[in-house]
Design a protein around this nucleic acid. Structure first.
Length: 731
DNA sequence: GACCTGCTGCGGCGTG
């Protein structure tokens, strides 16, 4: 058999030799064979820095070089990535390979000079690296050029595919790929690059819905580093004032154990990042040591973030980034000694991705330090504190991580907000379109396959009825942009399908520090902690959305807001299993073990080891749903519709009975018997996505029922709760 | 109860 190396074009072979590589990695060898031997779509799944880019591009570039010269013009390969930084990075790497082959490499995103874009459109050749938003802009602004630019494309490489599965941007991207194939009149080979996937079969369907069975999956074989982990417990708010607060204890532990090496500390929220970065900076100053702890999150200025990323990457000075998920994916920041996680993460998939940043060098273990903070208990403590839900979720997620499980993507969402966006985009691209054609492109060929023609018609009607209208119809049925549609599409903020909040810019001495959400109440004289430092607010300009600050001695961290995350059923089920068992995990420190024992004892005292409903006060009940956020929230909506006051927790509901409500058991019996749940009776806000304001209430409800709620679970869930609780009564 | 991501066209000015 010909070796993988022999299957590559000469210039590519020369480049490999020049790198001094002893051999190709396993996934590279396999990808080269598959990509060179057939025309199938491919998914390459391996951890960060596993050599995926080369696995895809070495054979693809070889394909291009061996194709007939003097073609009709147009880009040869298309690469789409969700981050600008990734495009810049990959362009530099590909440049080196392509220099040898004399193939142009064209980065294209919002920060790339217009002159480079103009030149590339005049003479399109080589590899185009672009974001989904810039590709969207190409369709809208230069729709007529699209066939000429892409008629010669041999393959499209989709990077970080795991972040795109069934997300708003993922659906937009798939819609653009469909439109691209329609524009050039033939399918284009798709190559997906991904981190480890929860469900490979599902990813294949995502990549090529009409021919998923023929997608070739190439997964990196095991070989993961040894994992060392510790879960440390801390108590907050105790009466003994001689014990320092957990924030100080955790900061001290990080200071003592992480100083001198490169590390990532995931603090859970931007506010928490600011708090810990401030503590650690102060500790370095007090000890007269050089600074090595830096905050990193999306509200900090690009300059500051670049500094932190450079320090981590070049590895000369020890650097610990206190960060949010900004450092979870994206550019290569090199290997870190340890990953710390403060508080429970929201998904096993993200925990795994974070951990993948550590233990990448041969012989080095991956190290995870998990910190769990729980409240000291007194007679008034809530059941959630008594059950130590944070610690239990951390434990459940660690167990699932060790079992190599991670969440598959959610499927079945209608994505009506993104559908509105794509309808406007196609009408803008073509200068007008008929409804049946739009339906065919978007819902039959494209990704909105769950949308029936009836719902599609309702969406069009809602867009026409919005005031002012998004779309209008001529006498012969052609759909055109209405006044509001025109306004939206002509502004550059249109290209992204995701929502972004309004923000102030924070400026000190002419330098931008970062941004703050406008819902922070900021006034001159206030003290702030931001970018790991303390500031005094001098001036607030509400119209220009600018806050001027000067250095100060004290301050409080700002509030950044956020939205509710979705915890998977499997995670909550595992939490219940942790609560029911009585083993003692070796990776827990003494405090964590005590907290776990307390949680288990309270769980069984509340009879949850046998039943599902516990009365904790007059008219106050706890219901154990035992399932994830979607189902638990659905039951909460159904109970609220019947007058109960309901608070949602991981796998539990706290239910307060009002005067006018029927007994909880009677209501659950009704739901178990399949009564209409009337989920939306209390008019909850359903506008969560960018184009939701242009849809009718009914469409918003239908949309919510496909992602955030699951009406079909109610009969079985209610029946299970009732059945288990009867068992308790009998006992 | 949290986090992240993206962006065009054009006018005005300076420089070679």
């Amino acid at each position: 058999m010909t070796s993988a190396f022999d299957k590559l074009a000469r210039p590519v072979q020369r480049w490999i030799r020049a790198q001094g590589w002893r051999e190709l990695r396993d996934i590279q060898t396999r990808a080269i064979h598959v990509i060179r031997d057939c025309q199938a779509d491919v998914i390459v799944a391996a951890s960060t820095a596993g050599g995926k880019t080369e696995a895809a591009f070495l054979p693809l570039i070889s394909d291009v070089l061996e194709a007939e010269v003097g073609g009709i013009g147009g880009f040869d390969l298309l690469y789409i990535a969700p981050l600008k930084a990734l495009i810049t990075d990959q362009a530099n790497r590909l440049e080196a390979i392509c220099q040898e082959a004399e193939l142009p490499v064209v980065p294209w995103h919002g920060d790339v000079a217009a002159s480079i874009k103009t030149r590339a459109t005049k003479r399109p050749r080589g590899i185009l690296l672009i974001t989904p938003e810039s590709l969207e802009a190409l369709f809208i602004r230069r729709g007529l050029d699209v066939p000429r630019l892409f008629r010669s494309v041999r393959a499209v490489v989709l990077d970080e595919v795991h972040t795109m599965l069934d997300s708003e941007r993922g659906v937009q991207l798939r819609s653009l790929l469909t439109r691209l194939e329609l524009a050039i009149g033939r399918p284009v080979r798709r190559i997906g690059l991904s981190a480890t996937l929860g469900d490979m079969a599902q990813a294949c369907v995502y990549l090529r819905p009409d021919d998923a069975a023929n997608v070739q999956a190439i997964e990196a074989a095991g070989g993961e580093a040894e994992l060392r982990l510790q879960l440390r417990g801390y108590l907050a708010g105790g009466t003994d004032k001689s014990i320092p607060a957990p924030t100080d204890l955790i900061a001290k532990h990080i200071f003592d154990h992480l100083r001198g090496t490169d590390n990532l500390v995931f603090a859970g929220s931007r506010q928490s990042v600011e708090i810990y970065a401030d503590r650690l900076r102060t500790m370095c100053e007090d000890a007269r040591l050089p600074q090595e702890f830096y905050p990193h999150h999306a509200s900090l200025s690009r300059d500051h973030r670049d500094l932190v990323e450079r320090r981590l990457k070049d590895g000369r000075l020890p650097t610990t980034a206190i960060c949010t998920s900004t450092l979870e994916l994206g550019i290569d920041i090199g290997d870190v000694s340890c990953v710390a996680q403060i508080g429970a993460p929201f998904s096993v998939a993200s925990l795994r991705q974070r951990l993948g940043r550590s233990g990448r060098r041969a012989g080095k273990p991956a190290i995870l330090r998990q910190y769990a903070v729980e409240a000291a208990l007194d007679s008034k403590s809530s059941f959630a504190d008594r059950l130590r839900l944070g610690l239990i979720r951390s434990t459940a997620m660690i167990e699932l991580l060790l079992e190599k499980w991670c969440e598959p993507a959610q499927t079945g969402a209608l994505h009506l907000s993104t559908l509105v966006h794509q309808i406007l985009s196609i009408i803008a691209e073509k200068g007008g379109a008929h409804a049946p054609r739009l339906y065919r492109i978007l819902c039959q060929d494209g990704p909105f396959r769950q949308v029936s023609s009836a719902i599609f018609a309702d969406v069009l009607r809602a867009m026409g009825q919005a005031d002012p209208a998004l779309i209008e119809q001529t006498k012969d049925g052609l759909l055109l942009l209405g006044p509001m549609g025109e306004t939206l599409v002509s502004h550059y903020s249109f290209y992204a399908v995701f929502q972004t909040p309004e923000e102030y810019r924070l400026i000190s001495d002419g330098r931008e520090l970062g941004t703050l959400p406008v819902d922070n109440m900021v006034a001159p004289g206030m003290m702030l902690i931001f970018s790991g430092r303390r500031w005094l607010v001098q001036e607030v300009d509400d119209r220009a959305k600018v806050i001027l600050v000067t250095p100060a001695k004290a301050g409080t961290p700002p509030i950044f807001g956020g939205d509710a995350g979705i915890i998977h059923d499997v995670v909550i089920e595992r939490m219940f299993s942790v609560l029911k068992r009585n083993d003692c995990p070796a990776y827990m420190d003494a405090t964590a073990q005590v907290l776990l024992a307390e949680a288990r004892s309270n769980f069984s005292q509340m009879q949850f080891s046998r039943g599902r409903i516990a009365q904790i006060g007059e008219g106050e009940w706890i219901v154990a749903t035992g399932c994830g956020t979607v189902k638990t929230t659905t039951l909460a909506f159904a109970l609220r519709a019947r007058g109960f006051t309901v608070q949602i927790y991981d796998g539990f509901l706290e239910v307060l009975i009002a005067k006018c409500t029927q007994p909880l058991e009677v209501v659950l019996r009704d739901l178990a018997d399949g009564c209409d749940a009337k989920l939306f009776a209390d008019n909850a806000n359903l506008m969560t996505e960018k184009f939701h304001p242009y849809l009718s209430r009914r469409l918003l409800e239908i949309d919510a029922l496909t992602v955030r709620l699951d009406e079909s679970c109610l009969p079985t869930l209610s029946e299970t709760i009732l059945f288990d609780s009867q068992l308790v009564h009998l006992a």
